[in-house]
């Protein structure tokens, strides 16, 4: 039997909560200011693609910050079942989200015309019909 581990190590310490809080706070504010700068510069300063990458990195970093400092995933004992279930859930989530986006954008391209996938903004149905007719060379 272990020599009565002090209960603080199991639920983190004051220090770990402060670290997690301050890191999350700064990651949130950085993400906010990146987008603010992007919008203020008329959607050019960090380009659209860069903003996407920066925001994804910041959000995933914050996910790990909170998992470690708030949920104490790193303090788990031996078989680490929590981490195993988390990893499985992560796989399901990635398949679900990435798969949906992939399949539906492909479907959109073939059904609703290329404007959907390339232009970004959706068109009203009449415009869609017209675009498909133009693209596919269908004579009225």
């Amino acid at each position: 039997m272990k020599p009565a581990p002090d209960k603080d190590t199991k639920s983190g310490t004051l220090h770990s909560y402060w670290t997690g809080y301050l890191l999350s706070l700064s990651l949130t504010l950085v993400a906010f200011s990146v987008v603010k700068h992007h919008v203020d510069s008329g959607h050019v300063s960090p380009s659209d693609n860069y903003v996407l990458v920066i925001l994804a990195v910041l959000a995933i970093t914050q996910l790990f910050v909170q998992l470690v400092f708030f949920l104490h995933l790193d303090r788990e004992s031996k078989p680490r079942w929590n981490a195993v279930v988390l990893a499985f859930a992560a796989v399901v989530v990635v398949i679900l989200v990435a798969g949906s986006i992939w399949i539906i954008s492909n479907l959109n391209y073939h059904h609703a015309g290329p404007g959907h996938t390339h232009g970004g903004h959706a068109l009203i149905p009449q415009q869609n019909d017209q675009q498909i007719i133009n693209d596919e060379g269908i004579s009225p």
Binding site: S24, A31, H43, L55, F70
Partner: peptide, 25 residues
């Protein structure tokens, strides 16, 4: 507390995906 921290993590992704990306692009 696990539940509450979990909801905070979900919100980070809502903040990023819905709001920040919604305004950025």
């Amino acid at each position: 507390s696990l539940f509450w921290h979990f909801l905070d993590i979900i919100w980070i992704f809502i903040f990023t995906v819905v709001y920040l990306l919604g305004v950025a692009s």
